[in-house]
Write a protein that binds this DNA or RNA. Structure first.
Lengths: 113, 113
DNA sequence: TTCGATACCTCGATGATCGAAATATACAGG
DNA sequence: CCTGTATATTTCGATCATCGAGGTATCGAA
């Protein structure tokens, strides 16, 4: 892999749910849009495959962290809009804390300032 | 899980190899010692289970990133000492870069200053 | 009408991590 | 001497998120 290439989340498995929740915290969005936003907001570094995203959304739905509603996209196509619930917001806070804690711990071991 | 509890690397799968290489970059160490060091250097945040550590060492051996040698531990017990190879050092640099890149990208999406 | 972009879903494969169990030894305390 | 604790390694099955690829469908532009 070349430096600068887009990467998947395999290296940091478990963070996709957090990223999705965060992306939805700015307002409802459909699956395709979520993937685009994550790509954009990460300066094209993060690539979220559909085979990862849709299962993730199913998980979040089952947990009650998001709701889903069929509607019409900006491009006039049938799309499913996901929205964050109150529990989802709480979960986002929890996962964010946990992530910071993990990264800080690893940074300590790795001596990353 | 309570805030402050030790955590496994499940959330950041793929970083264990990097942590092991980094730990060995200070000099040879046996498996048990590696786990202790990672725990200590992370202020008791990171817990490396044996069921994760030893397979990881096997991977690193196979890749030629570490060497292994039987010897005697500080406590006079039979132990296997692992040492970083030149390739291991290069790999450590690669993984460190990749990790920083990923964390930076995620931090951007998550709006973590 | 063809093509690219949008949009969703599903499937099997992969592979790292986990928890638990088994084994063994050194040493200290009672 | 006996027992428990810490040290030290290995192996096993289970879990589960991610991946890549494939399938379906629609819209609008060329």
């Amino acid at each position: 892999m070349e430096r600068g290439d887009p990467v998947t989340l395999d290296l940091l498995r478990g963070t996709l749910d957090m990223l999705v929740l965060k992306t939805l915290s700015r307002g409802p969005l459909h699956g395709y849009g979520i993937a685009q936003r994550i790509k954009q907001n990460s300066s094209d570094v993060l690539q979220v495959g559909e085979g990862s995203l849709y299962p993730a959304l199913q998980r979040l739905l089952l947990q009650g962290w998001v709701t889903a509603e069929w509607g019409t996209s900006e491009t006039n196509r049938r799309a499913r809009f996901y929205g964050l619930t109150k529990d989802g917001r709480r979960q986002l806070a929890r996962e964010t804390d946990e992530f910071r804690r993990m990264v800080a711990a690893i940074g300590q071991v790795m001596e990353l300032a």
